[in-house]
Amino acid sequence: MIYPAAGSMLYMLLELITAFLFGGLLLGLHRKIIARIQGRPGPPIVQHLIHTFKFYIKELTIPETSSMPLYVAIVLALSAVWVLAFLVGPVLLGPFSIIIMCYAVHKVSEHGIGLASGSPYTKMGSTRAVLSATAEMPLIVAPALVFFKTHTLVLSDIINYQILHGSLFMDLPLAAIATFILLLSKTPFNPFGIVWGKDIVSGYKTEHFGVIRGVMMFGEILGFFVLLWCFLTIFFGGIFNTPLTIMLTMIGVTIILGFICALTPMIAPYHSVMIQWIFALLALINVLFI
């Protein structure tokens, strides 16, 4: 088999397509597991991908109240940010700080998506997005601990360190748990998902349907893949460092996430923020073990 040269455009594009399809299947699996635990047959595993493609052929209506270029541009920014994170992370093994930046901008676009349509529900969702931006706390704790331990934040060096010295999970278990909570807060139907809670219809996504919802789902699928990959690579990089092992472990982690999401209720906004803070502070205790 002839490979395109690593780092060429075709290579990256193929990786992007693979990650998109695989991430879509993972989210479908996630939904299926939740349904099974709750005693329903549940949708087929491809349902999430079918949804994404379905939205591409649905009619797009833009609310008259919306703030116009922003309404479209912010959704494009959301998926562009995850494309960048995917290229820097799994494909090029570049600096981890760029992925942190991408996560931060993702929070900004969540906020912007909610604000731009002018609907009270999306406004509520975006207010909650600002509130839950406190979940950025594990994001500062985990890289800090990794940096103090390995003295680098470049992903390829972190992987090399782990191959030599064993996985970081052994040294930083609490930071790994905090990162896992961060990952959990980005999966659908999670207990911390106050931004798209059903008490406010669909949170910040309420007014977005048609093609623009398809683009949004594309970004979210990539984001799920990237966050899973980051969690596995940073804390288990010594064990899982080939595509096959990473993909199989991703399926395993998705099953665990499905169990958690199915068995926990949605938490009230302030409690959700408080619980995420508690896990971040627990991760800070990890400093004592370094």
Partner: peptide
């Protein structure tokens, strides 16, 4: 690379935010 990514993000966002008209809030 990190600060380059940041700069580009900020420039793009600033342009779009400055061009957008404010929404009609219900």
């Amino acid at each position: 690379p990190f600060s380059l990514a940041l700069v580009i993000t900020i420039v793009v966002f600033t342009i779009f935010l400055a061009l957008s008209k404010p929404e009609l809030r219900s």
